[in-house]
Nucleic acid binder design. Structure first.
Length: 766
RNA sequence: GCGCCCGCAGCUUAACCGGAAAAAGCGCCGCCCUGACUAAGCGGAGGAUGCCGGUUCGAGUCCGGCCCGGGUGCGCCA
């Protein structure tokens, strides 16, 4: 082959799809459990089935691909297990919107037709993100693709639910829950975020029921919940109010109900007026007070966040939206001269992580997981080092959450998901079973009826993803995969789902497998734009990774991303220019290859190095540098330090191989050994590069002397086979300094490079 | 309120257990078709590493305090 046959510029588009197709057809990414080799398993965090790739996938999934490829080359039983998540609320939100556009609703369609449509849509869009992953060069074991709602995983979900229920770790109860009025579903505490918002604090007077004095003043940000007030609470030690404890006041603006003034330690005397209205059904602190004082807990807002009179009189406000009711009540209070003050106030409002809707705390009959007994072992596993976080500080996030664990509300009012394996008899008895047949049998035996109604609710998406590390290996069936591949070595994920996902996998893994699901958790940084702002569609600063792949090639995208990931950093300020630079880097590699192929003496067929005594000082230097690069890159991958690995590869290939070694081989005296050494060095360099740059490394490796069908399954460079010569390396480095000084001098005196002084490497240097 | 991370050249980042004159890329200025590569090559300008103090032979790095600016976790006063 001659140089003229190869284009001067590396063209990823003509290379990447060709190799990927071959890899997939040859099933290079597929493994069977093999006890003879150490396992290296990564469970892919399942992307939402309907999602498209975003830059966050680049920062989290590229490291997984890199690690799997690296460990495969090390000869391990390496497998990256892919799959998708049904993403209950996220998917349902989109579906409902689609239906609305057609003038339909979920209910008008009916459950069966709705589910059929949801499945169809998931099937349609479900392949998209994985097609994108292929284009980026990700190589999970596609034959093991799973879906959280496929048959096997659904069976695992039902079994876990039933087992936990029978152990009384799952229960049904009327509790204060987070209602997301947009999603029209409850969500768990972990899915609520608190956002500072500008609001108002109103001071309102509650007149005494029996006259005598003005009454008591309270401060509130939520006047619409007044309708459900059941008490006024003050601190027991508050001198201003001590004498009022036990008196009763009327609830404005209706002034129909009298409620007591009570004392409770949770009240802060310094805030507002020091007196607080207590609405147990719509506020978590009030709920606690209500429990302590055995108060009534009437709900005054329904599931549409409208005022409801179902439990207590709400007068003319019945049916109003919560924010309209607020306006109306304030207006009425003003008329009654009970509204004393309105002042701007900034405070944290509970927002749905999923829909951004303001959360409505509601008292509702829902299903919960009792967390304390599950959290303790998970906490213990972290404390005695069975689970380790990288960077370590994320362990504290995990610990903090588990220490303050609250019961997990798992029932959702969406339809797209795993329907609860729960049935009710006409008498209201509860039957929990893995199948309908079993439910009927139990019901007949225990309750004497075959008339069962299934609970319409579904499970929190994170309930099924919490089982992911073992459910995808076939659990509850006993499989070879489960035997050899559980627990996995490392979980790679973003820091935002440490408790939504990571902590729950640990808890459920310990519970059902008696072992932690992974030994290490590698937390990848969040991707921001170059100014440090979150990437979002609304800001218009989001970058589509597929555009980058299109412009610069998959390898350049991966390398550009990897070079920006720092071990200890929690963020990447993503710069597109890094991908452009990486494209240039690939082009550099390509041209180094062209140079090697064009050597007049040709390249050797086999990869053998000349004997040490024949090597030039430059040969010995580059081999020593190769040895060091191989060591540094290996250590960096072992430590999940992707930035250092990428940087090392970059420097070695571009500055050391291209800028110095290649130049040195242009000297006459290097002729005897250069073809063999260059082949050896490039072959090794491509293997080191392969995890980060799978395509170009394959293309170059196949072009140069090599052994085997593909670099994907080639072996990782063995340090023992790379000869070291520190003294020679030091000599060459001294020479480099000299050359640099000469160049510097030359430029300073304005000498033309072609003039007198020696060029890159002084002639005659062996 | 309780925490965590970050702040180094115009920009984005390096700097191993503290160790020479604090690196690199981009950008900028100048030079250059040198056996592959102009998406390259060579040279250059550009820095009190946020502030004050301490430990040390030696601090960007460790310790204490402070300021401002970002990011992020938990909690929260209604």
């Amino acid at each position: 082959m001659t140089v003229s046959e190869l284009p001067k510029q590396y063209d990823p588009k003509s290379v990447e799809p060709r190799h990927y197709q071959r890899w997939e057809e040859a099933a290079y990414f597929h493994e069977e459990p093999d006890p003879a080799r150490p396992p290296f398993i990564i469970c892919m965090p399942p992307p939402n089935v309907t999602a498209r790739a975003h830059l966050g996938h680049g920062s989290t999934y590229t490291p997984m691909d890199v690690l799997t490829r690296y460990h495969r080359m090390l000869g391990e039983n390496a497998d990256w297990l892919p799959g998708t998540d049904h993403a209950a609320i996220a998917t349902e939100t989109v579906l409902v919107r689609q239906l609305a556009a057609e003038g339909k609703t979920r209910d008008s369609l009916g459950r069966e037709a709705y589910m059929k449509r949801a499945w169809a849509w998931a099937g349609e869009t479900g392949g998209t993100i994985f097609e994108q992953f292929r284009a980026v060069g990700f190589g999970p074991d596609w034959q093991r693709d799973r879906f959280t709602m496929d048959e096997g995983l659904s069976a695992a979900v039902r079994k876990v639910f039933v087992d936990l229920y029978r152990e009384r770790l799952i229960y049904r109860g009327k509790r204060l829950i987070n209602w997301d009025p947009k999603a029209k579903s409850t969500i768990s505490d972990a899915e609520v975020e608190h956002v500072e918002r500008d609001a108002f604090l109103w001071r309102i007077r509650y007149p005494f029921a029996r006259g005598g004095g003005e009454g008591i003043e309270v401060a509130t940000t939520r006047p619409e919940t007044m309708l459900g007030d059941v008490a006024i609470a003050v601190h027991p030690g508050d001198e201003r109010y001590k004498h009022l404890i036990g008196k009763t006041v009327l609830v404005p603006p209706l002034l129909e109900r009298a409620i007591p003034i009570i004392a409770d330690d949770s009240v802060e005397s310094e805030f507002g007026t020091g007196a607080v209205k207590v609405t147990p059904a719509h506020d978590s602190t009030d709920y606690e007070i209500g429990l302590r004082h055995n108060l009534e807990m009437p709900s005054v807002l329904d599931l549409d966040a409208r005022v409801t009179g179902a439990e207590i009189g709400v007068g003319k406000y019945e049916g109003m939206d919560r924010f309209d009711a607020r306006k109306a009540i304030l207006a009425d209070l003003r008329d009654q001269e009970l509204l004393l003050e309105e002042k701007p106030y900034r405070h944290a409002v509970a927002i749905s992580h999923r829909t951004d809707a303001v959360i409505e705390p509601l008292l509702s009959l829902q299903w919960f997981v009792k967390m304390e007994p599950l959290a303790q072992p998970a906490l213990q596993a972290y404390r005695d080092g069975r689970v380790r976080f990288v960077p370590e500080r994320y362990g504290r996030t995990y610990e903090q959450w588990l220490e303050n664990i609250r019961d997990w509300n798992i029932s959702r009012q969406v339809w797209w998901g795993h329907q609860l394996p729960v049935w009710y008899t006409p008498g209201g008895e509860v039957v929990v079973a893995e199948t309908e047949e079993e439910a009927l049998r139990i019901s007949a035996e225990q309750h004497g009826t075959l008339e069962l109604t299934r609970d319409p609710d579904t499970l929190d998406t994170w309930f099924s993803s919490g089982l992911w590390p073992f459910s995808i290996l076939g659990w509850p069936r006993q499989t070879p995969e489960l035997d050899h591949w559980y627990p996995s070595q490392v979980l790679v994920t973003g820091g935002d789902i440490i408790f939504l996902w990571v902590a729950r996998m640990v808890m459920l893994g310990l519970k059902f497998m008696n072992q932690v699901p992974f030994r290490e958790v590698c937390v990848t940084p969040t991707v921001y734009d170059a100014q440090g702002r979150k990437m979002s569609k609304s800001l218009g600063n989001a970058i589509d990774p597929m555009d980058l792949v299109e412009k610069y090639g998959a390898d350049a995208f991966r390398m550009g991303m990897m070079r920006q990931i720092r071990l200890e950093s929690q963020e990447v300020r993503f710069q597109e220019s890094r991908c452009e630079e990486a494209r240039n880097f690939n082009n550099k590699i390509w041209n180094a290859t062209r140079y090697a192929l064009a050597l007049p003496e040709g390249l050797p067929r086999a990869m053998t190095l000349p004997r040490a005594e024949h090597l030039t000082i430059a040969d010995k230097w580059i081999l020593t540098r190769l040895h060091d690069a191989a060591q540094t890159v290996s250590e960096a991958f072992d430590a999940y330090d992707f930035g250092v690995a990428a940087e090392t590869l970059w420097r070695f290939i571009w500055y050391e191989i291209c800028d110095w070694y290649l130049e040195a081989t242009k000297d006459e005296h290097s002729r005897a050994t250069r073809a063999a050494v260059l082949s050896f060095v490039l072959n090794n360099a491509m293997r080191l590069l392969h995890p980060v740059g799978p395509f170009i490394s394959e293309e170059v490796w196949l072009t140069l002397p090599h052994d085997g069908q593909t670099i994907v399954t080639a072996s990782w460079p063995d340090l023992a086979e790379i000869p070291l010569d520190r003294d020679a390396a030091a000599d060459f480095e001294a020479l480099q300094r000299t050359v640099e000084r000469l160049r510097n001098l030359r430029a300073e005196i304005g000498m033309q490079p072609r003039d007198v002084l020696p060029l890159e490497i002084p002639a005659g240097v062996p």
